[in-house]
Amino acid sequence: MIRVQAEDFDVGRELEKLSDGNLDVGGVSCFVGLVRDMAGDKPIETMTLEHYPEMTEKALAEIEAEARSRWPLADTLIIHRYGELAPGDRIVLVAAASAHRQAAIEAAHFLIDWLKTKAPFWKREVTPDGGQWVDARSSDDAAAERWIEK
């Protein structure tokens, strides 16, 4: 399931729903992304996430479908927020449920790595120096690269 929303989400409740009524699920793995309080040595006041709604849904659906084609998953979940957030706020939740831990853990790792380099979201941080668009990191590209099937 995919949800792109301004509102916060309840991690515990979302994870419970992922395996509810499915006793084949032996494990659920997840990653929760949060807004940090510092940009380098500058305190972050707010972080705003912009996105491309029509493409976001499509890109996330492709990422989810790719995970489900690679691992035997009972269910997957991607929730990504947009709009203005503050330090400590949740940004993203990815989770994967499977019969066994390896598939669940690897799939959750894959989901966040691919999302970071493929889903059309952009972060803008405001510090006492003003607003600044966050630059993409080459380490994120490298993290996604390792999931490319050779």
């Binding site: 996105h51 990504h80 952009w122 972060k123 966050v134």
Partner: peptide, 12 residues
């Protein structure tokens, strides 16, 4: 066509 231009993405 709908053509979108944007910088490298930074979500997650």
């Amino acid at each position: 066509d709908e053509i979108a231009f944007f910088p490298p993405v930074t979500g997650g």
